[in-house]
Design a protein around this nucleic acid. Sequence first.
DNA 1: ACACCGCATTGAAAATATTCAATAGTGGTT
DNA 2: AACCACTATTGAATATTTTCAATGCGGTGT
Lengths: 233, 233
Amino acid sequence: MKNRTIENAWRGAERCKNCAIRHLVLFADLTHDDFDRIHHPIDDIEFKPGSRIYLQGDQMPFVYTVRSGLIKLVQHLPNGDRRIVRILSQGDLAGLENLDGQPASHEAVTMDHVRVCRIPRSIIESLKRDTPRLHDALLQRWQKALSGAENWITRLSTGNAKSRVARLLLLLDENSEDDSFFLPTREDMGAMLGITTESASKMTAEFRRNGLLRPLENHRAWIDVRELRNQFD
Amino acid sequence: MKNRTIENAWRGAERCKNCAIRHLVLFADLTHDDFDRIHHPIDDIEFKPGSRIYLQGDQMPFVYTVRSGLIKLVQHLPNGDRRIVRILSQGDLAGLENLDGQPASHEAVTMDHVRVCRIPRSIIESLKRDTPRLHDALLQRWQKALSGAENWITRLSTGNAKSRVARLLLLLDENSEDDSFFLPTREDMGAMLGITTESASKMTAEFRRNGLLRPLENHRAWIDVRELRNQFD
DNA sequence: ACACCGCATTGAAAATATTCAATAGTGGTT
DNA sequence: AACCACTATTGAATATTTTCAATGCGGTGT
């Protein structure tokens, strides 16, 4: 049990009602009655950086709401190449694609310290039957996932290495609530952008030398948003 | 009216019940009662190659079920670059993303001769309220769209130009019912793969010289699936 | 048949990205 | 503080891709 820890597990949905980020999560619009229909436990789980939440091919009995941290979705090609196809952050749902019992088409790995709520699929199933409010919340998640994936294609997989890195930094910055953001390893940046680790490193280093990127403590960083947008939108 | 023709419009949902490809479309599982709830007209429309069905930024009052042909979804970057983010074929739904009234995040353009059924959004809205069967059909469409987009990233935007072209040809071939398939212009291939028109052309020409690709009449082509898969999965 | 237009192909030079290998940081551990 | 493991950076040689320009090819309309 090297990577994964359950630090703070608790039972039932009682605390969902008072969840600090409830306005952001799947259950945002549920009523008190809806919550009372939840009989299976929802666990609050923490993962260390680099933990695998689920694997490509897994049958998933759970979905996960991201409370904090970043999760990368990694798809493996038969030839061994890997590509990060999307990043999940606060309020996103991991495992959405597998709600209908399909095996996962990618694996989910934490990039930094991550807290999630683990929701049994059966809860979603039964709520889906009874509450249209959940339907809309799920549809919104699908919508966001799809437009995220399309953005990934146009913004992060198009143009030369420098623009790609620039657009990735801008995306990471937008997704952060803070005015700093988590800066992935160069290897992960490469896998997100479809370029090599070294190329990601060269571009990142160049931005740093130009003062457009400032690394901070703890794998976090700051960027000159205005200037980066100016040069690369 | 250069690009768009309505050759064969008809009213109401009567003919949906007997549609030849109904098993493939959104309305596959509707009952007779469900159909009787449809009061707005569903039109059968044909488009010439290169017709714009909707534009990036449009508010869409319709969704479109593809009956035959291929539709490209094109996203424009602020800097003028464009990228094709997905292709729709028989049974797919164009405009899914915009069911909730959001402006379209990409434009939809026909690649060859295309027949669609144009469904007013209001029909979907009202059916959604009453029939859970439609819900599942919609969810399946979302699922397919998302996994399509992720595949696009890993298979078509990763690796060198030659593998990308090979994987695109394989994808086009799989999506075709025929044993031949529609071969896009080199420009479109480039926009799908994030490479230049010339690179797409060079790779395509090389495959032709190697006998792995045989162009046929009418922009269609045949590939040596086994050999291409062997070399590029 | 002819000219014409748009798309495809090709080649050579220039730009960009990858590879491989060495060096430098960085954080964590003893 | 010294050490270790891991990641980042950098440089030089190589490979790939883009760019730009020329040429070929196929169908359309006259």
